[in-house]
């Protein structure tokens, strides 16, 4: 029998920010490393980094820019299977903001990718709406 996948939206109390960092961490799960790490640097020296997140990962400077999804609610969702093998996707956290990061020196790529993503979504709405 074919199984299904279903989003099961529900209100969640827990909130978090999602930071898409430019490195691959081979781990998924809880951590207390972020308690004193990944603190935003408030002293912005370069005008290039104004209105952007500036922080460090293992001493390397990374720059972040917000990714905005209009008319969308963002969640961290976890998946589980029911007795019949159907996939249920449920929210565990509500994501208040998403930031995408690149290493210092790669700021152009950061802006370029986000602006192209916005343009791609606008094109999608032109093609699929109305």
């Amino acid at each position: 029998m074919e199984t299904t996948a279903t989003f099961l939206p529900k209100s969640v109390q827990k909130q978090c920010q999602a930071h898409l960092v430019p490195c691959k961490i081979r781990y998924t799960g809880q951590t207390d490393e972020l308690e004193e790490q990944f603190i935003m640097d408030k002293q912005v020296i370069s005008p290039l980094h104004e209105n952007r997140n500036v922080t460090y990962i293992r001493g390397r400077k990374v720059i972040g820019e917000q990714v905005v999804f209009d008319d969308r609610t963002t969640y961290i969702m976890s998946t589980r299977e029911d007795d019949s093998g159907n996939l249920l996707i449920e929210p565990t956290y509500k994501v208040t903001e998403i930031f995408n990061y690149e290493r210092e020196g790669n700021e152009e790529r950061l802006t370029d990718e986000i602006s192209k993503f916005i343009e791609c979504r606008e094109l999608d709405s032109l093609i699929h709406e109305g």
């Binding site: 827990k14 920010q17 930071h19 960092v21 490195c23 951590t31 972020l34 961290i76």
Partner: peptide, 22 residues
């Protein structure tokens, strides 16, 4: 891609998560 996700709860930074996928 070289991308992973940090999940940070600003009200309680001890409650942090890492997602391998970005």
């Amino acid at each position: 891609t070289f991308k992973s996700t940090f999940l940070i709860n600003e009200e309680n930074r001890k409650d942090g998560h890492i997602l391998e996928d970005g």
